[in-house]
C-alpha cells in the first residue's frame, strides 16, 4: 500500500517537471493538457445547452448537443489514453482542468437564444482547434506519430462540426473565423 507521503513525493516531482517544460521548451503533452481541460469544460457546457435550448429548433438542437457531448466525452478518453500510451501523465483532476481550461462558461448562457448557443459552440470549437493545431506541430517535431494522428483526427472532427454548426446559422464554414491570419 502506498502512503500519502510517497504519492505526494511522486506528484511533486511530476509537477516540477511540468512546470519546467512550460517555462523552457513546451511539448505536445503540455499543450494537450489544455485541450483536455477545454474538452472537460465543454462537457458541462454542451449539457447546459442541451438542457436549456429553446424554440422551434428545440428537438433538433437538443439532439445535436447530446451527440456533441457524447462525442466530446469519447475524445476526452481517447486523447488522454494516447498521452498515457506515449509515456506522459495527462491532468486527471477537476482542479487541474479548471486551471488549464481556456474556455469560459457562465450560468447566464442558459438564457442564450438557440442561435447564440450554436455560435458560442463554434467559437469554443475554434478556440480548442487552435491548441490542437499547435499540439499537432509539436507532436510532429517530437516524432510522436500516434499522438499526431489522434490530434489530426480530433482536428478533422472539429472542422466538420464547425462547418455543420455554421451551416445551421446560415454561414459558411470559415465565415467570421478570427483565427484565420489574413496578413
Amino acid at each position: 500500500m502506498t502512503t500519502i507521503n510517497e504519492r505526494q513525493e511522486k506528484l511533486a516531482a511530476e509537477q516540477a517537471y511540468k512546470e519546467h517544460i512550460h517555462h523552457t521548451k513546451i511539448n505536445s503533452a503540455a499543450v494537450t493538457d489544455h485541450i483536455l481541460a477545454n474538452i472537460h469544460t465543454l462537457h458541462v457546457k454542451l449539457h447546459q445547452y442541451h438542457w436549456y435550448v429553446k424554440g422551434k429548433n428545440f428537438y433538433a438542437l437538443h439532439n445535436v448537443f447530446e451527440n456533441l457531448y457524447n462525442e466530446n466525452e469519447a475524445w476526452f478518453d481517447k486523447i488522454a489514453e494516447r498521452l498515457l500510451a506515449s509515456g506522459f501523465k495527462p491532468a486527471s483532476t477537476t482542479t487541474e482542468f479548471q486551471e488549464f481550461t481556456t474556455i469560459s462558461e457562465d450560468s447566464s448562457e442558459k438564457y442564450y437564444t438557440a442561435d447564440e448557443m450554436v455560435l458560442q459552440t463554434v467559437e469554443d470549437f475554434r478556440s480548442n482547434r487552435e491548441f490542437t493545431i499547435r499540439a499537432i506541430r509539436l507532436a510532429q517535431e517530437e516524432g510522436n506519430d500516434a499522438l499526431e494522428d489522434s490530434l489530426i483526427s480530433y482536428k478533422a472532427y472539429l472542422d466538420v462540426n464547425i462547418w455543420k454548426l455554421q451551416s445551421f446559422i446560415n454561414k459558411d464554414a470559415l465565415e467570421d473565423d478570427d483565427y484565420i491570419d489574413n496578413d
Binding site: E130, F131, I133, R134, D178, Y179, D181
Partner: peptide
C-alpha cells in the same frame, strides 16, 4: 479581446 495563439497576434 482575442489572442490568436498560432498567429501570435492580439485583436
Amino acid at each position: 479581446v482575442k489572442v490568436l495563439f498560432n498567429a501570435s497576434k492580439v485583436k
